[in-house]
Amino acid sequence: MKTAFITGASSGFGLACAKALAKKDFKIIALARRKERLEALEAEFKDQIYSLNLDVRDKEGIFKAVENLPEDFKNISVLINNAGLALGVQKFDELSLEDIESMVDTNIKGFLYVARAIIPLLRKQKSANIFNLGSVAGRYPYPGGNVYCGTKAFVRQFSLALRNDLRGSNIKVTNIAPGLCKTEFSEVRFKGDKQKADLVYENTKFLSAEDIAEVICSILALPEHININELELMPVTQSWDNFYIERF
């Protein structure tokens, strides 16, 4: 039985991936901050789930937890480095330093802690997959995106660079870059204001977390010699806006 390590496993992409892979007989190491949601996942899939109630920003906690994984969960062949967040839509110079640091610490530093802790275990496998959850925001900036867009551009470039470092290891690296997808993303961005969050998705068709999980499962089913470097996906209802031109 293969094992997948998934961050942000209590909601959104992470939860959908955990459930989809568990149903395909993977063992799941589910890392998230919300203990009660991890317990619900354990209740649903029993011994297939090993939960880690941690924040990816906890450097010491991440490395200690990985070092102390049970033997029957150390055979990790899939990493889904998913935990991340956006906070606010203010102009950069109006954004709080706390929100700036939270995005950088989670989307970049926490992301790197997890990768650094897990890759040595992936190297022990005959073959393995890393899925880094980026965003279309890493390629197409938008007003109010500033720091978030920058962190996802980092994920994209790091994913490409990591392919070079892992040459010869038979570890695949894929940057998954979704567009408009309805999860708790906007609720987090608007600090729990559900009315504002719902307006983002009003009167349109969007991706679901289950769509992303299905895409990841499809990539895992590809022949061993194929690496998808980057997969960018949007709902049909989403496209690019025109360049803004200031008029006088």
Rank of each mutant, 00 (worst) to 15 (best):
C149F: 12
N82A: 05
F5I: 02
N107T: 07
G168S: 04
D25R: 10
G134I: 01
D198S: 11
V173F: 04
D105E: 13
V188K: 04
I171V: 15
D105Y: 04
L95Q: 15
A209C: 06
A209F: 06
D165E: 15
E214C: 10
S11N: 07
K109Q: 02
F158T: 01
S51M: 06
F185I: 04
K24H: 08
G84C: 14
Y148E: 01
A177S: 15
E101V: 03
I49C: 12
S102W: 04
A137I: 06
Y113I: 00
L133Y: 09
S208V: 11
A177D: 13
A9D: 07
A177V: 05
A65G: 07
A9N: 10
Y201T: 06
E224L: 03
L180K: 02
I28A: 00
E60S: 13
S51E: 08
D58P: 03
S102I: 10
A65F: 04
V78N: 11
I29N: 06
L166R: 08
Y148C: 00
F73K: 09
P120V: 00
N129Q: 15
N229E: 15
Q238C: 11
F5C: 05
L87R: 13
S135P: 01
N53H: 07
T7R: 10
D165F: 00
F111M: 13
T106C: 10
V236I: 15
G61C: 09
D58T: 06
A117N: 12
E36A: 09
I176P: 02
F154M: 04
I6Y: 14
R163C: 01
R34K: 14
L87I: 11
G14N: 03
V66C: 08
R57C: 14
I219R: 01
D105W: 00
F92Y: 14
K74A: 00
G150F: 13
S51W: 00
Y50G: 04
T151G: 03
K23E: 13
F131R: 05
I228N: 04
N82G: 00
G192N: 05
D93F: 07
M1F: 06
N129W: 01
F243P: 12
F26R: 00
E71D: 10
P178K: 02
V78Y: 15
K64S: 11
T106D: 09
E210V: 05
L166V: 02
T237F: 10
F154Q: 06
L121N: 11
Y201W: 09
S208P: 03
K46F: 03
P223F: 03
E187M: 09
V215L: 15
L87K: 15
S10C: 13
I118L: 06
G179W: 12
G8P: 01
V89C: 11
E187P: 02
G110Q: 08
H225D: 14
I219T: 10
E210S: 02
W240D: 11
A197M: 08
S96W: 11
A9F: 09
L166I: 08
I228L: 02
L122H: 14
N68R: 13
D72V: 09
I226G: 09
T183I: 03
R33H: 00
K19D: 09
N164M: 11
K91I: 06
K46G: 10
A43K: 14
E36I: 08
A16C: 07
R163Q: 12
S169H: 02
I226H: 12
R57D: 03
V56S: 08
K191W: 05
A117Q: 10
V104C: 04
A209E: 08
E60G: 08
I119Y: 13
A213M: 09
W240L: 15
